[in-house]
Design a binder for these strands. Structure first.
Lengths: 147, 147
DNA sequence: TATTGTTATACTCTATAACTATA
DNA sequence: TATAGTTATAGAGTATAACAATA
């Protein structure tokens, strides 16, 4: 794993158009979040994609819907789930109403790992330095932007 | 390419700890930004990694430093740059002071593509819906968090 | 016929380790 | 000896297309 560290110049020039300032800052945030998530995933013994998959399995979920949530082609999920299932983190259950459908369910160990992952996320997060007041501001902005 | 679309439940329960609310929202933002960046990269004919590489080449830069900025092992850069160089988007120049060192320089076409990419980023961005006042707020928060 | 999931295929990205050439 | 970049290798993630089972 490569550790997070200050990388490319990301200081924004106040004279730049506001949209461009935000773009550059988000590029930088993106890089740091990517590194942080990779770090967290590795800490619990997962690849980033496996960690994201677990994240989307708060509730049992058919494979096709997992693919939608992951925003990837459905054919990929087979392999990712194969690797998770080998480690007994998830099981494929038959949907009794539609025998084509497989529903993914976290095992107890899978749930434990998912929770541990979520508990680790705030620590060392690129935005961890914000004060509670700033975090509330950020939350409100994100709620507004993401619907 | 898989199009961005509302994915997993990300609504935050105001009773949750603030840190967890922010975590969940950032997970969702992360997914949408990933999809958006992939979309922009594809629109200019690049993979996400190639796009990120171009982004970090505002100025000529030795390969090792590019690896640091990309937060990946230096050995990867060889292949990524091979593919960019095949398309004449970047060239490897010799550093006259240290003959071990190769400096990456964008070609004119590489600069053009990089600029086009940056111009496309704001359009359809997950945070594009924010008002200018909200964008200023967000910029200030990011500047505070990222140093 | 249409849909769910799988398989086959090809390519990109990624880390590790060993190597070359410089320093 | 140490550093910059490359090569070899292996594994994971990804999209496309063709397929099987079921609806």
């Amino acid at each position: 794993m490569i550790d997070a560290q200050p990388s490319t110049p990301h200081q924004v020039d106040p004279d730049m158009p506001l949209g461009k300032q935000v773009s550059l800052l988000l590029f930088e945030l993106n890089g740091r979040m990517r590194a942080h998530m990779e770090h967290v995933a590795e800490a619990v013994g997962l690849t980033p994609t496996q960690a994201r998959t677990l994240h989307h399995l708060a509730e049992p979920c058919p494979m096709g819907e997992v693919a939608e949530r992951m925003r990837c082609d459905a054919s990929n999920i087979t392999g990712v789930v194969d690797r998770l299932a080998e480690r007994d983190l998830v099981v494929r259950e038959q949907d009794p109403d539609d025998r084509r459908r497989r529903v993914l369910v976290l095992t107890e160990e899978g749930q434990r790992l998912r929770q541990e992952m979520h508990e680790r996320i705030p620590h060392g997060h690129p935005l961890a330095g914000l004060t509670p007041a700033q975090q509330r501001q950020l939350r409100d902005l994100l709620v507004a932007a993401l619907d």
